[in-house]
Amino acid sequence: EIEQGFLPKGWEVRHAPNGRPFFIDHNTKTTTWEDPRLKIPAHLRG
């Protein structure tokens, strides 16, 4: 299961009806299937 707590500020994870997680960026009011944490360099992750 995906943990909400480690998402960047302003992001939220939800699950589509088929169970697939998607990510909501409230900063830009966009959604994506890609986990935003995967784009953060390892040394900047919490």
Rank of each mutant, 00 (worst) to 15 (best):
G10P: 01
L44M: 14
W33H: 08
H15G: 05
G19Y: 01
T32Y: 04
G10W: 02
P36W: 00
A16E: 06
P36L: 00
H26A: 03
W33Y: 10
F23H: 03
N27K: 10
P17C: 08
E3S: 13
R37M: 07
F23Q: 02
G19P: 03
K39H: 07
P8C: 00
D25T: 00
F6T: 15
P17V: 10
I40F: 09
R14L: 06
L38V: 13
G10V: 02
R20F: 02
F23S: 01
E34Q: 07
L7A: 04
H15A: 12
N18W: 03
T31N: 03
P41A: 12
P8G: 03
R20T: 09
P21M: 09
P36R: 00
E12S: 08
F22N: 02
R45W: 10
T30P: 00
E3K: 12
H43T: 15
I2V: 07
F23C: 00
W11F: 02
T32P: 00
K9F: 02
A16H: 03
G5E: 11
F22G: 03
A42L: 11
G5N: 14
Q4E: 15
K39V: 10
R14V: 10
N27P: 00
E12F: 07
A16W: 01
G5S: 12
L38A: 12
E3C: 11
E34P: 00
T30W: 00
E34N: 05
K39P: 11
K29P: 01
P36G: 01
E3I: 11
H43W: 07
I2H: 07
I24G: 00
K9A: 11
P17D: 12
P8L: 00
G10F: 04
T30Q: 09
A42V: 11
D35K: 02
N27S: 08
L7N: 00
P17H: 08
R45V: 13
T31A: 14
V13D: 01
W33Q: 07
R14Y: 06
P17S: 13
F22E: 06
P8W: 01
V13C: 09
Q4M: 06
E12L: 00
P41W: 05
K29M: 08
G5H: 07
G19N: 04
P36C: 00
F6H: 14
E34W: 08
Q4F: 15
T32W: 02
L44A: 15
P36V: 00
R14Q: 11
W33R: 05
K29T: 04
F23T: 01
A16S: 12
N18V: 01
P36I: 01
F22I: 10
I24T: 03
H15E: 11
I2P: 00
P41T: 10
Q4R: 14
P41L: 05
A42C: 11
E34T: 06
T32S: 11
D35F: 01
K29S: 09
D25H: 06
P21C: 12
H15N: 11
W11D: 04
K9M: 07
H43A: 12
I24A: 02
V13M: 15
E1S: 07
G10T: 00
H43R: 10
P41V: 11
I40W: 13
P8F: 07
I24S: 00
L7G: 05
